[in-house]
């Protein structure tokens, strides 16, 4: 899926003190990180916040990276964990009404997707995805959009393959029901 040798060289260059190697790693993975976070959170501002957090973690921890897993798996792991934690915090804030409705609607307006047709499509899809529980959504996104195998997802999430398949199954079933309801 990714050029592992190149990742290896980039990480080693960064460890050796070449800061530009980090920039190349960011350029290589920034869009995947963004889209994973975006699909998880359903809006640009939250996704951007997660991207910045993930890149900061990457910058601080990359020097200790030992290639026990591939770099992209590790990056997905950080992105996935951060996204889920972010969603939990956000839900908590909403529960205690710290996030008011105005800031929520502002978040939905601000975007870096400017093409109107694409944006409308994205809005429709995000509405469906946001109705899934975080864990199901995570598996669904990693499997359907990032096209990772269950073994890779298991490495990222730390869950068993059986459990992931069950989560995926429930996620798809719910999505199909939601699509059907929307069309009706």
């Amino acid at each position: 899926m990714t050029d592992t040798n190149s990742d290896y060289e980039l990480v080693n260059s960064f460890i050796a003190g070449d800061e530009s190697a980090f920039n190349r790693i960011v350029m290589k993975y920034q869009q995947r990180i963004y889209w994973h976070a975006r699909r998880m959170t359903g809006n640009h501002l939250d996704a951007d916040e997660i991207v910045q957090e993930v890149l900061l973690v990457l910058y601080n921890k990359l020097k200790n990276f030992q290639f026990k897993s591939s770099l992209y798996t590790w990056i997905y792991k950080i992105t996935s964990t951060r996204s889920i934690n972010y969603i939990k915090k956000k839900n908590l804030r909403q529960f205690f009404s710290i996030d008011d409705n105005e800031s929520v609607s502002l978040k939905s307006k601000e975007d870096v997707v400017k093409d109107i047709e694409t944006k409308e499509k994205l809005d429709r899809l995000e509405k469906v995805l946001q109705k899934l529980p975080a864990k199901q959504k995570e598996v669904f996104i990693l499997r359907s959009f990032d096209e990772l195998s269950y073994e890779e997802i298991s490495e990222i999430t730390g869950k068993s393959v059986g459990g992931l398949k069950a989560n995926y199954f429930h996620a798809v079933k719910k999505i199909m029901e939601l699509i059907k309801d929307n069309e009706n």
């Binding site: 920034q30 963004y34 889209w35 870096v112 997707v113 694409t118 469906v128 359907s144 699509i179």
Partner: peptide, 22 residues
Amino acid sequence: RYRQFLEDMKSVNDSALEESYL
């Protein structure tokens, strides 16, 4: 319907992002 949903989601790809943001 389900395949359409997946295709739509995948079609919202990287090129949809503003260059300046990246």
